[in-house]
Amino acid sequence: MSQNVKQVPKRFLRPGEHYVTNDPIVLSTLLGSCVAVCLYDPVERVLGMNHFLLPMRNPAGGALALASDAGRYGLWAMELLINGLLNHGARRQNLRAKAFGGGNVLNIPHSAQAPRLQIGAANAQFVRHFLHEDQIPLVAEDLGGDRGRQIFFDGADFSVYLRRIPARQDQQIVVAERAYLHHTLKVQRRPAPAEFF
């Protein structure tokens, strides 16, 4: 006897992406130094997730406040996610957050020009501060450490399943994040386009 099992739609997010929906979908991603925020309105049944690598753009070097076009950076990624939920019918006072990632897996050595970049720790600090300032309750988190994570955000009940990446697979995340970081910093060094009013 065959059973007709309904497949739940799934969406995988890469660094710099975000996704918002009213559907009971499963959103997933792989995280090393990156952070993903799972944001939802349990009353209006709207949910979304982002995935960012750097807290914000670094205008002059120095501090690790490194932010971008679209969702590469935490500041924009959070604004895109919140606005996306509000545009889908969520109410700001109902929003709840769960945050994951921020592992210090990118051990970038320091130089005379820049201190050691602890991107994971900076991301974790940024997201806690942002949610506190925006008065969005952080109801669950798994931030920091030195291991990668895979998360699955279930839109049916807003639960998050977390799987720690075995050490032997961490290198895959590190390679992908280093390439993404290199590309992001290269783009960041380009002169900003002129603005017209």
Rank of each mutant, 00 (worst) to 15 (best):
S2A: 14
N4Y: 11
K10P: 01
K10V: 11
F12L: 14
R14T: 14
G16P: 03
G16E: 11
G16K: 08
Y19D: 05
N22W: 01
L30V: 10
L31V: 07
C34D: 15
V35C: 13
V35R: 09
A36V: 09
V37H: 03
C38M: 08
D41P: 00
E44C: 07
R45N: 13
F52G: 02
F52S: 09
F52L: 05
F52V: 01
R57L: 11
R57P: 00
N58D: 15
P59I: 07
A63G: 12
A63R: 05
L64E: 15
A65V: 04
A67K: 04
S68M: 06
D69C: 02
D69F: 10
N83C: 01
L86M: 13
G89R: 05
A90T: 00
R91G: 02
Q93A: 09
A97V: 04
A99W: 02
A99Y: 03
G101I: 06
N104A: 09
N104F: 00
V105A: 01
L106D: 05
H110K: 08
I119G: 07
N123T: 06
A124D: 04
Q125H: 14
F130H: 10
L131C: 08
H132R: 12
H132Y: 11
D134G: 01
Q135A: 10
P137S: 00
L143G: 06
G144A: 11
R149F: 07
G155K: 05
G155H: 06
A156D: 07
L162E: 12
L162C: 08
P166V: 02
D170N: 13
Q171T: 06
E177I: 03
E177N: 02
Q188G: 08
R190I: 01
P193S: 06
A194M: 11
